[in-house]
Simulated scan of single mutants.
Amino acid sequence: MKQLLQTILEPMLEYPGALHIKSEETQHNVSCRIEVHDDDVGRVIGKGGRVIKAVRTIVSNANHGSSKKVFVDVD
């Protein structure tokens, strides 16, 4: 999951070195927290949240074989 998020997000960031992804997995869900440079937060969220919604959709579909729910948050 971390590698997929990194592959999606790095090309769109102005400061890709500041990208940090923390992933926690429990019995019922997977939680990924994305930390980026302050100038890149808008790029990750997108206008009206379109970009982060698309990222969440991709990550959820990549985890389709598992019954765990995936959460992606931006800090």
Rank of each mutant, 00 (worst) to 15 (best):
Met1His: 00
Lys2Arg: 14
Gln3Pro: 08
Gln3Trp: 06
Leu4Lys: 00
Gln6Asp: 12
Glu10Arg: 09
Pro11Asp: 05
Met12Thr: 01
Tyr15Phe: 14
Ala18Val: 01
Leu19Phe: 08
Leu19Asp: 10
His20Tyr: 09
His20Leu: 12
His20Cys: 14
Ser23His: 13
Ser23Pro: 15
Ser23Lys: 14
His28Met: 08
His28Asp: 15
His28Arg: 12
His28Trp: 05
Asn29Lys: 13
Asn29Met: 12
Val30Arg: 03
Ser31Cys: 10
Ser31Ala: 09
Ser31Gln: 14
Arg33Val: 15
Glu35Trp: 03
Glu35Val: 14
Val36Leu: 12
His37Lys: 09
His37Cys: 07
Asp38Met: 13
Val44Tyr: 00
Ile45Met: 04
Ile45Thr: 02
Gly46Met: 01
Gly46Arg: 00
Lys47Pro: 01
Lys47Asn: 09
Gly49Phe: 07
Gly49Tyr: 03
Gly49Pro: 04
Arg50Cys: 00
Val51Arg: 09
Ile52Met: 02
Ala54Ile: 07
Arg56Ala: 02
Thr57Phe: 11
Ser60Met: 11
Ala62Ile: 03
Ala62Thr: 04
Asn63Val: 05
Gly65Gln: 13
Gly65Asp: 15
Ser66Leu: 08
Ser66Thr: 11
Ser67Ile: 02
Lys69His: 09
Lys69Pro: 03
Val70Glu: 08
Phe71Gly: 05
Val72Lys: 01
Val72Phe: 10
Val74Lys: 01
Asp75Val: 14
Asp75Cys: 04
